[in-house]
Write a protein that binds this DNA or RNA. Structure first.
Length: 124
DNA sequence: ATTCTGACA
DNA sequence: TGTCAGGA
C-alpha cells in the first residue's frame, strides 16, 4: 500500500510517517515513481512506535527496542535479554529529568514569590 | 488525484 | 508536527 492508505489505517499523518522513516523506524520500499510502498506489517510497526513514543522513549532508542518486542494485545512484551536493562537506563534518565524540572520549578517559585503580587502592578 | 522533497510568517 | 511551494 502507499502512504495514503497507511494514513487511513494508522491514523498517523504523512508527515510523521516520513519522519519515522527518516529516523530509521520504518523502511518502506519505493516504486520507480519514488512513491513509498508499505506492507501490512508496517501498520503494526507504527502502532508499536506510537506505544514506545508514548512511553517517552527517544526515537534513537526505539530503533533498538523495536526489533526486541513482541505484541501482546495493547502492550508490548520485551523478548531480548539486554532490552530490559536498556529500559531501566531510560527510566533513570526520566527520573533525572523529573528532578531537574522540579528544581527549575522551585527556582521560579522563589522568583515569583519575591515579585509583585500580580501582573497588574507591573503594567505601566 | 497522489505523492515527493525541502523549508519555515 | 503542521503546512506550503513546486514538480512528477
Amino acid at each position: 500500500m502507499r502512504i495514503g492508505e497507511m494514513v487511513r489505517r494508522t491514523g498517523v499523518s504523512e508527515r510523521l510517517l516520513r519522519y519515522y522513516e527518516e529516523q530509521g523506524l520504518l523502511a518502506p520500499t519505493r516504486l520507480p515513481s519514488g512513491y513509498r510502498v508499505y506492507d501490512d506489517a508496517d501498520v503494526d510497526t507504527v502502532r508499536r512506535i506510537r506505544t514506545l513514543l508514548a512511553a517517552g522513549l527517544p526515537t534513537a532508542t526505539i530503533v533498538q527496542v523495536l526489533p526486541c518486542v513482541r505484541d501482546d494485545g495493547p502492550n508490548l512484551v520485551p523478548v531480548c535479554s539486554d532490552l530490559v536493562a536498556e529500559l531501566r537506563r531510560e527510566r533513570e534518565r526520566i527520573t533525572h529529568a523529573i528532578n531537574d524540572l522540579q528544581a527549575s520549578r522551585g527556582m521560579l517559585d522563589a522568583v515569583i514569590a519575591a515579585g509583585p503580587a500580580d501582573a497588574e502592578a507591573m503594567v505601566q
